[in-house]
Design a protein around this nucleic acid. Sequence first.
DNA 1: TGTAACAAAGTTGTATACAAAATTGGATGC
DNA 2: GCATCCAATTTTGTATACAACTTTGTTACA
Lengths: 228, 228
Amino acid sequence: MAETAAKPGTSDAVAADLELAIHEHRLPPGTKLGEDEIAEAYSTSRTTIRAALQALAHRRLVELKRNRGAFVAQPSVREAREVFEARAMLEPRTARSAAERMTPESVALLQAHIDAEHAALDAGESGRALYLSGHFHIEIARIADQTTIEAFVSELVSRSSLIIALYWHRRAALCDSQAHHALMQAFIDKDGDLAEELMKNHLLDLVASLDLRNRTSIPTSLREALGR
Amino acid sequence: MAETAAKPGTSDAVAADLELAIHEHRLPPGTKLGEDEIAEAYSTSRTTIRAALQALAHRRLVELKRNRGAFVAQPSVREAREVFEARAMLEPRTARSAAERMTPESVALLQAHIDAEHAALDAGESGRALYLSGHFHIEIARIADQTTIEAFVSELVSRSSLIIALYWHRRAALCDSQAHHALMQAFIDKDGDLAEELMKNHLLDLVASLDLRNRTSIPTSLREALGR
DNA sequence: TGTAACAAAGTTGTATACAAAATTGGATGC
DNA sequence: GCATCCAATTTTGTATACAACTTTGTTACA
């Protein structure tokens, strides 16, 4: 929904495409993003790719190692906690604001999001479902008419996708479609209090579904992953 | 304080330098940032400058107009409100967290900041004082040990500097050194409740010192500025 | 005199070429 | 056989050249 289409071949378009791939877990954390390789894939020059990678680096979705190259970011346990703490500060109040400003059109938009998410799940496209699930949160910020916060939430949601890729634990589960449904009701009723409370709990549930036990910093380096 | 020094000539160094200049109001909102001009000033190529300008564009400190060039951003009234709403969501709770984690070293660091700010004011370097005053807020996030939120606050503080340049109204006034002093006492006492409350009020005072009456959108275009 | 079309200058967008750094593979010495 | 050093390869960092677009200044025409 609302796939923002930029003129193809521009750094914006490439960045959006790469971000989507990362968000849908087609590019797992740690993947090396070689400039030549990507440039060829999009049939453009490295100049364009570099701009795209820098943009993604600014959103902390890729890590730029000097003279080493770009890699899909691998948030540490600590970074994971910070991301959800930031979300806890921003999203509940934003959900309240959105609920208070909710219009029938906005409700329809969100409902379409949820439907698309279910359709993706049924089709076995779990990556796409995850992406849509994240964008549900971004859409709420947009409805709250807070573009600045929307930008922050957008970054946090994308980073959350990386965190889920690394630390997701509780398999299966009802995911969070239940939580989104409950939020929808609060939105329909324009119940700001309820929306804020539900969002707060929803984020807590998300964190609870992660395995954030300290495994001595990051699994970035092979050395640690192999324990020697 | 903590002028993060990057290897000179790199895009990071140029970006930091430009951001400082913008923050200190040496480059007022709307200033055209020609690539050739800057490249010559830093005796480097346009490639490096473009990367720096893109980084600043990500932080919304400069606006990149396609085929037109880069300009120091001119936040709209609406954007100004949004920035301070976001700060209100993030900073009070961060101040609480910082107060609870305060150490003698942190207190000394913040005090040094305030002293430097006063020294700059006495020396008539109001731009530098403004910069230091903003960094006081960033330092609090750092003490709270929240790098993710610190990054957001850093962006918001820099944007606030642009907003102040455009909409500052209440001349003179005690600025906010008073507010920072009060916060210091809360920090020394490790009084989280008080710190949160003081920060909240401090931000409200800041907004109140701005003239955010709707002058039909932005003063960006000459047409509107001239009212025809 | 005012408008419109056109031409020229300047600036940004993109690609390519070259330089520097890091990794990898092999060779040499212990 | 193992470690270390050195060379070759690959990849990124930077500069420059060219193309495309926007703006501005001029000229022709109504």
